[in-house]
Amino acid sequence: MKSETLRAVVNCLIPADEFPGAYEAGVCDYLRKLFETDLRDDAEFFTTGLESIELEARARFGEPFASLIPEQQTITLEAIQYGDVLSSWQISRQRFFEMLVCTTTEGFYSEPQQGGNRGAVSWTMTGFEDQVNP
């Protein structure tokens, strides 16, 4: 799993604003663990998907995904989501993109012990966690 690509991809899916983005919240750590455990059978598939994002970014904008500006990153991921790709895909694009969005989001919003919601940032952000009733 190429870490700079993954870092940029998860932060495009859940960008930083006044609350941390997915990478800062620990989602890459979460994903690494997930693909070593529950989803180990899909680890290769997922890595191939990330490589395909790279190929699409280079085909579209001539740069690595991580070097693109946010608008270009969004365009790249939307192209993959909606099937408007310039690169050729050896794996199921739909299945990969669904897995990418769901696993990233699961990491960000599940409990901090899983690794992707450091300091319970998403719980503070949503208001799930409060002081009265932890």
Partner: peptide, 15 residues
């Protein structure tokens, strides 16, 4: 289902 609009909806509307 992703991107800043999704995050903003979660932030503003979960409660």
């Amino acid at each position: 289902r992703w991107g800043i609009r999704n995050k903003e909806f979660m932030r503003d509307n979960y409660t």
